[in-house]
Write a protein that binds this DNA or RNA. Structure first.
Lengths: 339, 339
DNA sequence: TTGAAAGCGCTACCAC
DNA sequence: GTGGTAGCGCTTTCAA
């Protein structure tokens, strides 16, 4: 093993030219004869020469690799973001180094550390629920490596951001419920420290307000894990309230599934008696019966946009500003809200 | 931008020692005084020294990065493999460079090329449907870089393989259908050129044979895209046969979903009139109604196993042999087959 | 149009 | 126990 490919030196020696000439010929620099170029390229082709990319990177002080850190790979939304990101990187000749945090800050720090100092040219990150400050991310900036935040972000960490408009999407979702005649709308939210949860909550509140509907704290429980179990649990609790809600706007489709399961277990009719709305448009939303109304977030597009932005910054040798790019979401209406 | 971190040279200069001493101190080599080690480490810590990993890699001729190529990231099975792989790489100090082929050979070749010559120390790959030969994979071997195939593999490319036992799993799945009383079992298969499809087909045939049941070619259509639409279509075609089947064993849960949808559209009762069995245990299998019986493939475990194998080969400086490691699968029984 | 040579940051070999 | 230095493969400046 450890067979080595031929190097520039080998080519130069065999062809009786200098290493620098060989290098220039392969890169088709100006000021080199067609003849030499052909000679070198043919030789390289014939002997299957591939430049040692570590050496090239070392010399050029870049890696043509983008770091991408997500909370969870096994999550339809994030995997579609990853897929879009890979597609876009390929177009630009970059590659994706992928890290995963499982929503744990220590994991995030580890992933960052392993990408610092030469492993990547820039970073795409969706921060974990536990992430409150950004020293570990600032290190990239300090190295002159641009950072793009997507989906889950820290507001006070000033980088370009690519996100779903959670406020607007939630507003529209709740507004749809209202138009369908639901009046006592609960919102199973996430942790308030997470920006996305907070924004969805704000959109929810605003929609209620604009419709002159009552906001009740007790109708807004907060999931820690955004799990099916929590959905089930909270549906049960809320429906046993003296004033139970008549609709549930859920932070994600998985939570909505838990809600649906509880309603089913109680023989409660959806959408007749209770309306249910999810968020994210996972495949399960389509498969549930009744079909779950939800919000499509276009993850693939988000991944592509984030990469395109980062590549542009790299091209411009810029760290970017604090702009926010919103990826349009779409309300997907299925049976679960068609009262 | 382009601020640089301090280098070994800086440390050496500031501390009035040589670069080599500084290097040895940081790596805690033997033959260096405790005093110097402390001095250097403290200084490094204080000035936030991080070794330039490109330089280290260049020097050591390795990258601590494993290439991973999958057909599709947005696929519950593959994303759980990726997740397991990342978890395992982190434990070993490696990272994952991720590529995606969309089941296209040209994409696979591109992904390979971009990982060759110094970008990764070894490769984990699940080949595309179009992949028939392996010159592009052989290049890794020729460079002395070990390759592990997982899930979708080329039999004649001799590397370690980590797979689901498709034959056995299919056998068990069909056997379960038989035990439930189904007698005319169809199998919606994939393309025969794909090893996994072929193996599941074999398992299916063997189960029928062992039970003395009839095998009918017309009951075994082949999906090109393994899609929901194909499931729907084939269910329709097969049920319009003079001799329609009374159960469907589907190559994947998504195809089973299509089958279920067709049956539902026709008011056919599952499992009463027709039994349906999927493969892979996606979340949709649990959500469908009736719940879909299927086969759990333990993707996370497969990803971890593949990485552990690769890391071991790297440690042993070996390219590995042609062994096959089978990850146990589990039959998950839900309503759709409980006749 | 080409060659010589420096040097990227680090490791490791050879002296002392 | 420490320093000096070669050199990994490549790009790029300077000279010719």
């Amino acid at each position: 093993m450890d067979k080595r490919r031929i190097t520039l030196k080998d080519i130069a020696r065999e062809l009786g030219i200098s290493v620098s000439t060989a290098s220039r010929a392969l890169n088709s620099y100006s000021g080199i004869s067609e003849e030499t170029i052909k000679l070198v390229k043919d030789y390289a082709e014939k002997h299957n020469y591939v430049p040692n990319s570590i050496a090239v990177n070392f010399r050029r002080n870049r890696t043509m690799t983008l770091g991408m850190i997500v909370p969870e790979v096994v999550h339809p939304f994030f995997s579609s973001i990853i897929s879009g990101a890979i597609a876009a990187t390929n177009q630009h000749g970059y590659r994706i180094l992928l890290g995963q945090t499982d929503e744990k800050l220590p994991n995030e720090k580890l992933a960052c550390r392993s990408m610092l100092s030469g492993s990547v040219d820039g970073l795409l990150i969706s921060v974990s629920n536990e992430t409150k400050d950004f020293e570990h991310l600032q290190e990239f900036i300090d190295e002159g490596k641009p950072v793009i935040q997507f989906d889950k972000f820290l507001e006070n960490f000033h980088t370009p951001k690519v996100i779903t408009d959670d406020y607007e999407s939630a507003y529209e979702a709740v507004n749809h419920l209202i138009k369908q005649g639901y009046r006592r709308i609960a919102h199973i939210n996430g942790l308030l420290e997470v920006k996305n949860s907070m924004d969805r909550l704000k959109g929810y509140k605003k929609a209620l307000e604009d419709a002159g509907l009552e906001f009740r704290e007790e109708w807004v429980p907060h999931c820690k894990n955004i799990s099916e179990e929590e959905g089930y649990q909270f549906a049960q609790e809320l429906l046993n309230l003296p004033q139970p809600p008549d609709a549930f706007f859920c932070i994600t489709d998985l939570v909505a599934l838990g809600v649906m399961n509880y309603l089913k277990s109680q023989g409660i009719q959806v959408p007749k008696q209770i309306g249910v709305m999810g968020f994210s448009n996972w495949k399960i939303a389509e498969v549930m019966s009744p079909g779950l109304s939800t919000v499509e977030q276009h993850g693939h597009q988000m991944g592509m946009k984030a990469v395109n932005l980062l590549v542009q910054l790299l091209k411009d040798q810029s760290l970017g500003s604090n702009e926010t790019y919103k990826i349009d979401s779409d309300l997907i209406i299925r049976e679960s809200t068609l009262n």
